[in-house]
Computed example of a mutant assay.
Amino acid sequence: MNNEHQTILDAFQFRHACKHFDATRVIPEKDFLTILEAGRLSPSSFGFEPWKFLVVQSKELKDKLWPIAWGAQNSFQGASHFLIFLARKKPDTIYNSQYVTRIMTEVQKLPQEIADQKRKAFESFQKNDFALLESDRAVFDWACKQTYIAMANMLTTAALLKIDSCPIEGFNRKAVEKLLKEEGILDTERFGVSVMASFGYRAVQPHLKTRQSLASLVQWI
């Protein structure tokens, strides 16, 4: 195994869902910006980037999140940085939305003819291939899946930098969204909360990683 392969696997061995962070250590700005950049550069379906990353620095907001985000409580006591991942809702992710148009024209800079073709393909994908327009929840859940790609890349990037992390689903989504709306942070017509993650440095060594064998997970056909 060459050095590049070992570096990658070492990062995955290092990464674990950190439950006890060292509150005295803060992630250097350049390192955390690299983690955020890994999220920004992550792939998404059709390249439409249906996400937003909230970096929560306010202790007051963390205190308000405490009773409704039980899975984040350990992180609030020591993690250097805490993120809430937002996913876009149907008004932005439906094939004919202004958001989709803006991404194709201003970000992807597609010629009009190509953009029209891509929109038709996206419409067929939403209506026929994945049946995403059957409910608002279906299309929102599809957007949430994209945020997990970004989060996973951020967790791996952190591990490569010897920074610990913890992905978090332990929260009451409705209550968190209500709080963020009341705080003037969240437009609940366009965004919903998908997942959370914390980043910092471990205070204690983790248990040995346990996983099923590759042979039990992979089928060659």
Rank of each mutant, 00 (worst) to 15 (best):
L33S: 12
T210P: 00
K62I: 04
P67I: 00
V26E: 14
F32W: 10
L186C: 03
E134H: 11
L33A: 11
M151H: 04
T93R: 07
G200L: 00
A121G: 06
G192L: 04
K109P: 06
K178V: 07
I8A: 12
V204G: 00
T105N: 12
S216L: 06
A152L: 04
E37F: 00
S45V: 14
G39A: 09
E183W: 12
I8R: 05
E183I: 09
E134C: 02
A79K: 06
T93Q: 12
H81G: 02
V56K: 06
A72I: 07
Q126E: 14
S75A: 15
A175V: 07
E60K: 15
V100F: 07
R25G: 07
H207T: 15
F46W: 14
K90R: 14
A11H: 05
P91C: 01
A150T: 12
G71K: 05
Q146A: 04
A121P: 02
R25Y: 07
P206H: 09
F140V: 05
Q219W: 01
S124F: 08
F76M: 10
L65N: 06
K64H: 12
G200F: 00
K178D: 13
H16N: 13
E182C: 00
G184S: 02
V55E: 11
M104L: 14
W66C: 01
I68D: 05
A158F: 01
K209P: 09
W142Y: 03
T34S: 14
Q212Y: 10
S45H: 05
V193T: 13
G192I: 01
S58G: 03
D116C: 02
Q117G: 14
A175G: 04
L214N: 09
F53K: 08
A38T: 10
R15W: 09
A87L: 02
R15L: 08
F21P: 08
G78L: 04
I185M: 07
S194Q: 05
T188W: 09
L217P: 06
S124Y: 11
N3A: 15
T210Y: 02
A215F: 09
V218L: 14
T34A: 13
F199Y: 13
E60V: 11
I114T: 13
R190A: 08
K162G: 10
H20K: 11
F199V: 04
Q126S: 06
I68G: 04
N153W: 05
K30C: 10
R40H: 10
K174P: 00
S198G: 02
V193H: 11
G192N: 07
G47A: 01
S42G: 04
V195N: 10
S75W: 03
D187K: 01
V100L: 14
H207K: 12
Q108L: 14
R15N: 08
L110M: 11
D22F: 03
